[in-house]
């Protein structure tokens, strides 16, 4: 399923003196099967952008086309379209409300009007996706679980609606490294095995480096940069000027290039740096000075 955003502008408190432009003429296309990382400061417009994609916010101007259909067009079933795009908010565990994990996950499918058997199947599928054992957790109260487990229940609640596109707003915020790794591994599997298109808002460049096939960098309501992680992280100056970091490996790559070492400019994975340093070590074992002075 493809999403096309055309000249999307959004103003908050429109018509009042407090009116602020959150999105300013944003145009983007998201292809089927992409894993997109959205980066930007708080207030750069990234949360506003993702809330438009399933129709929770209406554009002040511009269009959102889902498989060519205008999300807010006349004669379009907005509700049906919206259901194909799952949205996981920040700290989604705060939305849990049912007595049991299974019931909470079933909330979405129930709203879709599915049959009991189908709902049960969806719940099992979703719990499997987030690595929660059905027999162990289904009948537990979600409020008895750990923070990381609660978050996975909340994500399962969205996955149970079987969206073609999954959008997550900072899915790892507040989690410890173990909890974060579980979520990231789970998203990686969803993308690779289920071919779900994923959009993830995150502040963590390392998470982005690990997962994203394309990055969108937002700044002041506009798309400031877009490209593969390799392309984006290679432009370290531009990232820094936007107040954003690049992964440590990319920083090292730049530091070594400045010292005169012969390295490609666009390395950003630690493994790549390791290979290149080992290669330099071998070729430079004669004690050749890399800086031609």
């Amino acid at each position: 399923m493809s999403i096309e955003i055309r000249h999307l502008t959004h103003r908050y408190s429109e018509g009042s003196v407090f009116s602020t432009v959150a999105l300013d003429d944003v145009s983007l296309t998201i292809q089927d099967g992409e894993f997109i990382g959205i980066i930007g400061h708080t207030g750069s417009g990234k949360s506003t952008l993702v809330q438009h994609l399933n129709g929770l916010l209406k554009p002040s101007s511009g269009q959102i086309l889902i498989d060519g259909q205008d999300l807010h067009g006349e004669h379009v079933n907005t509700r049906a379209l919206r259901q194909r795009i799952g949205l996981v908010f920040q700290y989604p565990e705060y939305q849990l409300f049912e007595e049991t994990v299974a019931k909470d996950i079933a909330f979405g499918p129930r709203n879709q009007g599915l049959s009991k058997a189908e709902i049960d199947g969806r719940v099992r599928y979703a719990m499997d996706c987030v690595h929660l054992d059905y027999d162990r957790f289904a009948e537990k109260s979600p409020f008895e679980l750990s923070g990381g487990q609660m978050r996975r229940v909340a994500i399962a609640g969205v996955l149970a609606m079987r969206p073609s596109v999954l959008i997550l707003d900072e899915p790892t915020a507040g989690l410890d490294p173990r909890g974060r790794d579980r979520i990231l591994t789970m998203l990686e599997e969803l993308h690779q095995k289920e071919h779900t298109t994923i959009l993830m808002v995150s502040h963590s460049m390392d998470d982005m480096a690990r997962l994203a096939t394309r990055l969108i960098v937002m700044a002041s309501g506009k798309v400031a940069m877009t490209g593969t992680p390799r392309e984006v992280f290679a432009q370290q100056e531009k990232m820094l000027s936007l107040g954003l970091d690049v992964p440590a490996a990319a920083q090292l790559c730049r530091a070594l290039r400045e010292k005169g070492y012969d390295l490609p400019a666009d390395l950003y994975r630690p493994e790549e740096l390791r290979e290149h340093i080992l290669r330099l070590r071998q070729s430079g074992s004669e004690g050749r000075d890399p800086v031609a002075e």
């Binding site: 090292l252 010292k259 340093i277 330099l280 070590r281 004690g287 000075d289 800086v291």
Partner: peptide, 17 residues
């Protein structure tokens, strides 16, 4: 840090420098 690592690479690859 990145700085530590860059220095160490220097030390490993160019002892002269």
């Amino acid at each position: 840090t990145v700085e530590d690592m860059a220095k160490e690479v220097d030390r490993l690859l160019c002892p002269s420098k």
